[in-house]
Design a protein around this nucleic acid. Structure first.
Lengths: 216, 216
DNA sequence: GCCTAACCTGAATGACCGTTCAAGAACCTC
DNA sequence: GAGGTTCTTGAACGGTCATTCAGGTTAGGC
């Protein structure tokens, strides 16, 4: 019985292991450089199995995207639930981009996804969904702050769009290790914009005011 | 004599034609999908010649990047010189991203370059140089406005960084045809940020105040 | 008008890599 | 525990390129 249960799970576990391997390889080599063999080796199985489960390399890519989506969402939720109150949450978001959390902070993977989304429908859908969720989370924090009276925004939707886009733009420079861009700068540049955009008062805007002691 | 001059130029012209073809093909199919044959066909020559001039496909990519750089810079200069005064110039920049000018507005090509820059040194250098120039141009406009007293910025460098990054971030959505993102929205979202970031007074901030009649 | 060097071509080469396949292992059902 | 289904493997296949090459063409120097 125990053996049976274990066995029943094994194929499913293997499948997932392959999906994770796919993501890892894409992260490492990009979509363009990811080979079936790389994935098989990374997952500790054979090429054959990768194709057995997903039909083709493209199939493996597509399937790995939905895993990515799920994990991104889950991690985002977990991350934001750690912190309470609109200002600290927003600050937390500012710091999220700087590399907290493997899925969220993985900007190079994001770049890969964007480019793939130009020509691949699965990637396009995944990226769109990911982005929508991400903006939704940001929007939620903004609404909280608005309701609490600590944020002010005449057009919250536009503000969210801008803040999300700014983060992507800064992320490019972080991902490409632009000289002069660091995680610290990333956080502060974005935070300053958020303060400006949402009319956060200087009293609340100090990073140290609600978080632990921090030196940026 | 005339014949000689023409002949002397022919190989060089062909070379350049190949470089332009390379850019065109990358734009169309991406770096990952660009084949030597595609380039040869696009340029109206043979595969052999592409390799003869550039040694390898990667060589053709690299060489085409420097052409891209030059043309980008040239076009940027030309574009900005068309308009006089800091506010109209900044407004012009806001509209630049929305597709004016083939090199500047070509956001998909930009995405391709970013991803290639993750792993290719030539692309990395090209992208960095391109970005530096771009930020420099923006910085120049900002400084003009500061000197004229129509802009206010406590940290111009940071403002430029943010405005440049915001444009990249918005560009991603434009490039990927995100539902709800249009060239008009792109321009207005960026412009609003610029107004906020640079403390442009509402009197100056109205798009129509210095340009032709416009409805956004 | 030859000679040499630069240009140019497209067919041949060979490596790489996705996919197929034949065979076997594992395991569930009855 | 026999039969059948699901999983798993790795070798073999075949197609797709980048690159090489052998052989032209062109043109400028002499």
């Amino acid at each position: 019985m125990a053996k049976a249960a274990l066995a029943a799970k094994a194929p499913e576990e293997r499948r997932e292991r392959i999906l994770r391997a796919t993501i890892a390889v894409v992260r490492e080599r990009g979509f363009a450089g990811a080979r079936v063999t790389d994935i098989a080796v990374e997952a500790g199985t054979s090429q054959g199995l990768v194709l057995y489960h997903f039909g083709s390399l493209a199939g493996a890519f597509a399937a790995s995207l939905t895993l990515l989506e799920d994990e991104f969402y889950e991690e985002l939720e977990r991350n934001l639930s750690e912190v309470v109150g609109p200002v600290p949450r927003l600050r937390h978001i500012a710091e999220l981009g700087a590399g907290h959390g493997p899925a969220v902070g993985d900007w190079r993977l994001w770049l890969e996804l964007w480019v793939r989304a130009i020509r691949d429908d699965d990637a396009r859908a995944a990226r769109e969904s990911l982005d929508t969720r991400w903006r939704g989370a940001l929007r939620q924090v903004v609404d909280e702050g608005l309701a609490a009276g600590v944020f002010a925004a005449s057009d919250p939707k536009a503000s969210v769009l801008r803040l999300a886009a700014l983060m992507d733009g800064l992320a490019i420079q972080l991902a490409l290790a632009d000289p002069g861009m660091t995680t610290g700068k990333f956080t502060e540049l974005w935070w300053k914009s958020a303060v400006l955009e949402l009319g956060i008062s200087p009293v609340n805007a100090t990073p140290g005011s609600q978080g632990g002691p921090k030196k940026n």
